[in-house]
Design a protein around this nucleic acid. Structure first.
Lengths: 143, 143
DNA sequence: CTATTCTACAACCAAATGGTTGTAGATCAG
DNA sequence: CTGATCTACAACCATTTGGTTGTAGAATAG
């Protein structure tokens, strides 16, 4: 299957490039287009109200982010979607979602415990509240 | 439930802000932190090798993208994760995934058809191949 | 009240971004 | 061969971005 290299961790720079690539309307549109059909660079350029060179740069940004790849066909360069890049982005956001759910579970757990043992400690219900300036050492997974 | 406003379509500018917000290592780390626990702005600033003002700006970027919100507590400003923003980002990538799968299905369909009716038309297997310069009018959902 | 802490915001700077035009190399059509 | 097309890339420009320092207001501590 394709699941093989999806397991690989992404470096910070890769993630920067990945989300940076998505952070532009034209580039998101290009990704959508080349996911559906096949386009040459000039074929894409004809779709937008900007120069060929500008579109070329957008494609280059997407390529650096591993979201598309180019394949030379005659004098044209065919731009194709790279599904792996998309899946990597989705996987990261899914990880955040997992963290969020774990947090929700932990809070529910804490609330349940304090409710049965110490019915007074129910502060604001968000866990760490940090009194004076102790939150600079809360890190759970930091270096 | 929270599903209410998730149905809403996101404007291009909102998506730009959303992905731009994710396109920085420090900001992704902040999102992870505030998803797990509660941090004041200065509490976050203490975690990174940059000035308070820099972290303040990162938080502002995340806030503009609806990924976090701030809540004044005494003289502190507590930064909290905004789950909606995260879910919006995930939803968009899921849409791309749907488009990708539809394409895969359509191609499989086409291949199956051409295989039974015209056993010769199996080009490269990627659908539209555009001969001369006709791909500038391929748009399916434009205009 | 005074001093400290936390925040907000302005001004500034270097680098990156998103766009342009121009030049030049390959490839295809006639 | 000649001309048209497609691509690549350099140079340039305006704006944004990610960082800094400095100033000032609010809330807390003593």
């Amino acid at each position: 299957m394709v699941v093989d290299q999806l397991r690989a961790q992404l470096s910070d720079e890769e993630l920067d490039r990945l989300f940076q690539a998505f952070a532009d309307t034209t580039r998101r549109d290009i990704v959508r287009r080349v996911t559906v059909g096949e386009y040459s660079v000039s074929g894409l350029a004809a779709l937008y109200a900007m120069s060929f060179a500008a579109v070329q740069k957008h494609v280059a940004v997407l390529e650096r982010a591993s979201l598309v790849s180019k394949e030379k066909r005659g004098r044209e360069q065919i731009v194709r979607a790279n599904h792996d890049g998309l899946q990597r982005a989705r996987r990261l956001l899914d990880e955040y979602e997992v963290i969020w759910r774990q947090r929700a579970d932990r809070i529910a757990d804490l609330l349940a415990e304090t409710a049965t043992t110490e019915p007074d400690k129910t502060q604001t219900g968000t866990g760490q509240t940090k009194n004076t300036q102790s939150n600079k050492t809360e890190g759970t997974t930091e270096g």
